[in-house]
Design a protein around this nucleic acid. Structure first.
Length: 970
DNA sequence: TTCCGAACTTAGGAGTTGTGCG
DNA sequence: CGCACAACTCCTAAGTTCGGAA
C-alpha cells in the first residue's frame, strides 16, 4: 500500500486527506488557552470556544440562575461549552466576524426588525438574551409567525428568538459583542476585532478550543501537523502543500512523530485531491491559518473555464439569475411570505418572494400532544411469510455452516461447529429482497425504569429557607433537578425556566400555591444525599457489587435477547428510558423539561404473529401489540418532550443491523465507480444557467469535498444547527485572499449536536464566484442555498446513481480516506506499534474530515501538566548528565542516550495526547469506515485485529472479519 | 405532489471498568 | 494499593432518508 498515489485520487476534488501528515491533527492543546481565553471575557454565556471551561465558569457566575447552580462548574463546563453554549453566540459571531463591528450593528438592527416581525414571542425571549435574531430566523420566524401565529408560540418562538439571541450574544466571542451587549450576558466587546481569525466561537456552542497553535509541536515539522489539524488538516494536502510548499506538509506528518513521509507523493496527491479538511477543531482551525485546506487543483483544470467564464461570469450569472425563473427558491413554495423583507434582488427575480424553500418551516408539531394519534395500528402487517409457520424453535442459534446461500431457514441444527458458538453467519446467506425484515420475532418486552423511591425524611426540600414536605410526584421531579445541581445545565436560564414550569405542573394545588419562585427553591440537601449515595455505591464491598452485577446479568439474560428468525440476538436497548430532565444539546429550547415516566400503556410492542406476546406488568396493558415484519423495532413509545417515537431495536451485532451496515459500504463503493463522473458533472453545473442547478452543484461540491452533512430544515423548537443545504449567509465568509490563499471560504457554523464546524477552505474560483452570487442581496438569516433542500438534492443524486444520497458521500470519503491514508502511512517493515500509530493517524485524518469532536477530558489539563513536569525533569536529568559527561565516559554516554530516548517518548506522548484531545476517533470507526479495510490491513500487516477493534467492535464487524481477506480494497 | 412522520443511523457525554504506574 | 487516566459501555439526542397520507 504504500503507494499512495494510487490512492489519492479520491476525490477529485475532494478531499484528500491529509497526506501523510495531514493526518495528525495537531496539537491543539495549546489552543485553548490562547484565543478564546481572551475572548472569554465575553461574558455571555456562550462559551467561547476554547477555553470554554473558564468561560463557562464565568458564565455561571454571571448567570444568576437558580441558586442551585452554584456549583456546577467544573466538570461539564467545558464540554458544554463546546456544544451548547457556544451555539448561540456562535452564530452571531460568525457574522460578526465577517461583518464585524459595523456590520453587527446593522445586523442587529435588522434583526431586530425581524424580530419585530416575528412577533411578540421573540421579543420576550430576546429580552433575556439576545436580541436579534438573525434573518434566517427571520424566515423562520416568519414561518412561525404564520404558523403559530403570534401567540402562544411564544415559547417556541421564543426559542427561536432565543436562538437568535444566542447567536447574537454569542456571536463570536469577541465580535459578538455588539449583540452581546444587548444580550444580557454579552459581554461586551472584547475583542471584537478579531477578525476572522479569532475564532469565532460560537459562544455557546462551540466551545471548542482554541486553536492550537502550532507551537509546540516538537519539531518544526509540526507545523504541518498543526496545520492539518487545524484546518484542514490535510488540507494541506493539497492546497497546502502547494502553497506552502508541499514539502512541508507532507513531511510533517510523521514527523510529528518523526517520520517523514512521502512528501512528494503527497504533493502529487494533493493535486489530485481536493482536500477536505475539515474540522473545526476549534482549536485547530483557527490557527491554522496557514494552510490551505483545499487544494485547488481543479482550478487549474477548470481554470480555463473560469477564465472565460469569469468574464462572462457576471453576465452569465446575472443572466442566469434573471432567467431562471425557475429558479425560484424552493422556499418560495413554501414560503411564508414574509419574504418581503428581503431585498432580494438579484438572485432571482422570480423569487421575489422567493421564499426559498424554507419557508415552509414547520412549526413544531404540536403533535406531541397528539400522541394519541398513533396510527400505528395500521401497519400491522403481518405478512404471512411462509416461514412463519413455524414458530421458531427458539432454539438457539445454530451455527450454521457456512453454506452460502442457504436458505434462511435458520434452524438447522447446529452441527458441531462450535465456533464461537452461536454466531449466525448471516453474511453467508442470501439476502432477502423485499422489505420484509424478519419472519419470526419473539422477545420479552422492555424493562421498565425502577419505580421511584422516596428520599429519607431527613432529606428535605427547602422553599424560601424553610423545609417543605413534598408529595411523591413533586418530590420525584425535585430529585431530577437535584441530581443535576452541579451541572452546567443548571446555570442556564432556559433550562431552569423549563424545569420550573414542568415542576409546577407536577405539584399538587397546595404545593403550587406555595412554590411560586424558582429562586426560592433549595435542592441542596437532596443533592448532597445523592452524592452520598453515589459514594456509598462506589465504596460498596466486593460482594455487594458482585450481587448487583449478577442481578444485572440475570436481567440482561432475560430481557436482553430476542429470537429472530430462529436465532438468538442481542437487543440494543432493552430498558425504557427513565424519567428525568430533558438534556438537549446546544441551545435547545426545551432543555430542562421533564421527561415523564413511561407506562406499559404508552408502549407498543412489535413481535411475530405466532410468537408469545411479552407480558406487561401485572395490572397493565400495552398500548398496542402489532406484528409488523417490515420494521426492525421490538417496542416503541412516544417521548413527551419532543413528541418523537423512540424504539427498542437490536444490537449492532445483529444481522438486521449488520446487513444494513454492509449495504451502506457497498453503496459507497459503488459511488467510487461513478465519482469521477459525478464530480465532472457538478463542476460543469457551476456554470449552469439555472440558479437551482448551480446551487445544487456547489452544495454537492461541499458535501463531497468537506464531507458536510445534508442539512435538513429544522423546527424552531430545536437547537439551531445547520448542515450543507441549510447553511445561511452568516455561516460563510468569503475572502478573496486570506493567509496567502486565494478564494477562501470560511465556514463557521453549529453542526449536529451543536458542534462547531470551522474551516477555512480554498475553493476554485468558479465556486467562489457562485457563492458571491448566492449571497448577493441576502442578509444574515437568509439561506445560502435558497433553491435547494435535501429532498431536492437527494432526488438529483438518485438520478446519478441508484441508492445515492448525500450521506453516502460522507461514508465514501471517510472510507476512501482511511484506505489511502493507510496505504500512505503504513510501512510494511515497521513494528506493530508503529503500524498502529499509522493506523491511528489514518483514523484521525478521517475524524478530522468528519469533524468528530469530543470535549476535552476534564483531567486533560492536569494530566498534561504532569506530563510536562516529567518532561522537564527528564530534561534536567539530561542536562545534568551532559555536564558530567566527558567524551570518553561510555557509561554516561549510554545513560544520556537512554535519557534522550525517554524524553523523546514523553514528548511524543504529549503531542499525541494533545492532538487527540479534541478529536474523537470512535465515531468514524464505528459509523464511517468500512471495517473490511481495517480487517484487510490487519491481515496484510500481521497486526492482530484486537489491536484495532475492541470486543464490541469485533462483534459488530464480525461480518467484515469473515468477509475480507488481505487483498480487500474499498 | 407535497408534507409529514416513522424508521433507522450517527453522535457526544456520562458513568463504569480496566489498567499501568508510582 | 490507591490513583490517574484511558478504555469501554450505556444512553439517548440529533441527524437522514423513505414512504405513505392527505
Amino acid at each position: 500500500m504504500t503507494d499512495a498515489q494510487s490512492i489519492h485520487i479520491q476525490n477529485g476534488g475532494s478531499c484528500e486527506v491529509v497526506q501523510s501528515n495531514g493526518v495528525t491533527t495537531n496539537g491543539h492543546g495549546h489552543h485553548h488557552h490562547h484565543h478564546h481565553s481572551s475572548s472569554s471575557s465575553s461574558s455571555s454565556k456562550h462559551k467561547s470556544s476554547s477555553k470554554d471551561k473558564h468561560r463557562d465558569r464565568e458564565r455561571e457566575h454571571k448567570s444568576s440562575n437558580s441558586s442551585s447552580s452554584s456549583k456546577e462548574h467544573k466538570s461539564s463546563s467545558r464540554d458544554k461549552d463546546r456544544h451548547k453554549s457556544s451555539s448561540s453566540s456562535s452564530k452571531h459571531r460568525d457574522k460578526d466576524k465577517e461583518r464585524d463591528g459595523s456590520s453587527n450593528s446593522h445586523r442587529s438592527g435588522s434583526s431586530s426588525s425581524h424580530k419585530d416581525k416575528d412577533g411578540s414571542s421573540s421579543s420576550k425571549h430576546k429580552s433575556s438574551s439576545g436580541h436579534h435574531k438573525r434573518s434566517s430566523k427571520d424566515k423562520e420566524r416568519r414561518d412561525k409567525d404564520k404558523d403559530r401565529g403570534s401567540s402562544s408560540s411564544s415559547r417556541h418562538k421564543s426559542s427561536s428568538s432565543s436562538r437568535d439571541k444566542e447567536r447574537s450574544s454569542s456571536s463570536h466571542k469577541s465580535s459578538s459583542s455588539s449583540s452581546s451587549s444587548k444580550s444580557k450576558h454579552s459581554s461586551s466587546r472584547h475583542s471584537s476585532s478579531s477578525s476572522s481569525k479569532d475564532q469565532p466561537s460560537y459562544d455557546g456552542v462551540f466551545v471548542k478550543p482554541e486553536p492550537v497553535s502550532q507551537q509546540l509541536m516538537h519539531s518544526g515539522s509540526v507545523d504541518a501537523f498543526q496545520m492539518q489539524q487545524l484546518g484542514s488538516y490535510e488540507a494541506a494536502a493539497a492546497g497546502t502543500n502547494f502553497n506552502g510548499n508541499g514539502n512541508v506538509a507532507g513531511a510533517n506528518y510523521k514527523n510529528g512523530y518523526e517520520e517523514s513521509i512521502v512528501d512528494i507523493k503527497k504533493e502529487e496527491e494533493s493535486f489530485n485531491n481536493l482536500s477536505q479538511a475539515s474540522s473545526c477543531d476549534y482549536s485547530m482551525s483557527q490557527f491554522r491559518a496557514d494552510e490551505p485546506p483545499f487544494v485547488v487543483k481543479h482550478e487549474q483544470s477548470y481554470a480555463e473555464e473560469d477564465s472565460t467564464m469569469n468574464y462572462n461570469d457576471h453576465d452569465d450569472d446575472a443572466d442566469e439569475m434573471n432567467d431562471d425563473e425557475e429558479d425560484v427558491p424552493l422556499a418560495m413554495r413554501k414560503r411564508k411570505q414574509e419574504a418581503t423583507d428581503r431585498p432580494d434582488g438579484g438572485m432571482d427575480n422570480d423569487d421575489d418572494d422567493d421564499i426559498p424553500l424554507l419557508a415552509r418551516k414547520k412549526v413544531k408539531k404540536e403533535k406531541i400532544k397528539k400522541e394519541s394519534k398513533e396510527k400505528s395500528k395500521k401497519r400491522v402487517k403481518e405478512e404471512p411469510s411462509d416461514d412463519y409457520g413455524n414458530v421458531k424453535p427458539k432454539k438457539k442459534k445454530m451455527k450454521k455452516e457456512p453454506e452460502p446461500a442457504v436458505s434462511p431457514g435458520k434452524r438447522q441444527k447446529a452441527k458441531a461447529k462450535v465456533e464461537e458458538e452461536e454466531v449466525w453467519r448471516w453474511w453467508e446467506e442470501e439476502k432477502r429482497a423485499d422489505g420484509v425484515k424478519w419472519s419470526t420475532l419473539e422477545h420479552k418486552g422492555p424493562v421498565f425504569a425502577p419505580r421511584y423511591e422516596r428520599v429519607p425524611r431527613n432529606v428535605r426540600f427547602y422553599y424560601d429557607g424553610k423545609p417543605l414536605e413534598l408529595s411523591e410526584e413533586t418530590e420525584e421531579a425535585a430529585t431530577f433537578y437535584a441530581k443535576m445541581l452541579n451541572h452546567d445545565y443548571c446555570t442556564k436560564e432556559v433550562f431552569n425556566n423549563n424545569f420550573f414550569k414542568d415542576f409546577r405542573k407536577s405539584m399538587t394545588p397546595r404545593e403550587r400555591e406555595i412554590i411560586k419562585d424558582f429562586r426560592k427553591c433549595n435542592f441542596q440537601e437532596m443533592f448532597n444525599y445523592f452524592q452520598a449515595e453515589s459514594e456509598k455505591r462506589k465504596a460498596a464491598s466486593k460482594e455487594e457489587k458482585l450481587i448487583k452485577k449478577n442481578e444485572n446479568e440475570a436481567l440482561m439474560k432475560e430481557f436482553g435477547f430476542c429470537m429472530i428468525d430462529g436465532h438468538k440476538e442481542k437487543i440494543g436497548n432493552f430498558r425504557l428510558e427513565p424519567p428525568g430532565l430533558f438534556r438537549g444539546r446546544g441551545e435547545h429550547p426545551k432543555m430542562g423539561m421533564i421527561k415523564r415516566r413511561i407506562q406499559a400503556s404508552d408502549v407498543s410492542i412489535n413481535c411475530g404473529k405466532d410468537s408469545k406476546v411479552p407480558s406487561p406488568p401485572p395490572g397493565s396493558r400495552w398500548k398496542e401489540v402489532r406484528h409488523d415484519n417490515t420494521v426492525t423495532w421490538l417496542a416503541s413509545w412516544i417521548e413527551n418532550v419532543q413528541g418523537q417515537v423512540k424504539y427498542i431495536m437490536l444490537n449492532p451485532s445483529s444481522k438486521l443491523k449488520g446487513e444494513k451496515d454492509h449495504i451502506k459500504y457497498e453503496t459507497a463503493r459503488r459511488l467510487d465507480k461513478v465519482i469521477d463522473k459525478i464530480r465532472a458533472t457538478y463542476r460543469d453545473e457551476w456554470k449552469s444557467k439555472e440558479m437551482r442547478v448551480r446551487q445544487r452543484a456547489v452544495a454537492l461540491y461541499f458535501i463531497d469535498k468537506l464531507a458536510l452533512r445534508a442539512g435538513n430544515e429544522k423546527d424552531e423548537d430545536q437547537a439551531d444547527t445547520v448542515g450543507c443545504c441549510s447553511l445561511r449567509v452568516e455561516h460563510v465568509q468569503l475572502h478573496k485572499e486570506l493567509n496567502g490563499k486565494e478564494n477562501v471560504v470560511v465556514f463557521d457554523f453549529p453542526g449536529k449536536d451543536s458542534i462547531r464546524y470551522y474551516n477555512e477552505v480554498e475553493v476554485e474560483k468558479r465556486v467562489f464566484k457562485n457563492l458571491e452570487l448566492f449571497m448577493e442581496h441576502k442578509k444574515e438569516g437568509d439561506d445560502l442555498f435558497d433553491r435547494l433542500n435535501t429532498q431536492v438534492l437527494n432526488e438529483h443524486l438518485k438520478e446519478l446513481m441508484e441508492g445515492l444520497t448525500a450521506k453516502v458521500f460522507r461514508t465514501y470519503n471517510a472510507s476512501k480516506t482511511l484506505q489511502s491514508q493507510l496505504d500512505l502511512l503504513t510501512d510494511p517493515s515497521a513494528t506493530v506499534p508503529e503500524k498502529l500509530l499509522a493506523y491511528n493517524r489514518a483514523n484521525r485524518a478521517v475524524a478530522i474530515l468528519c469533524n468528530h469532536q469530543r470535549s476535552v477530558p476534564k483531567s486533560h489539563e492536569k494530566s498534561m501538566e504532569n506530563l510536562k513536569e516529567k518532561i522537564k525533569a527528564k530534561r534536567e536529568a539530561i542536562e545534568k548528565c551532559e555536564s558530567e559527561y566527558h567524551s570518553r565516559d561510555e557509561k554516561k554516554g549510554k545513560q544520556l542516550e537512554r535519557l534522550r530516548d525517554q524524553l523523546k517518548k514523553l514528548e511524543l506522548q504529549e503531542t499525541d495526547r494533545d492532538e487527540n484531545k479534541t478529536i474523537a476517533l470512535g465515531t468514524s470507526k464505528l459509523n464511517y469506515l468500512d471495517p473490511r479495510i481495517s480487517v484487510a490491513w490487519c491481515k496484510k500487516h500481521d497486526v492482530p485485529i484486537e489491536k484495532i477493534f475492541n470486543k464490541t467492535q469485533r462483534t459488530k464487524f464480525l461480518w467484515a472479519v469473515h468477509m475480507a481477506d488481505e487483498n480487500y480494497r474499498f
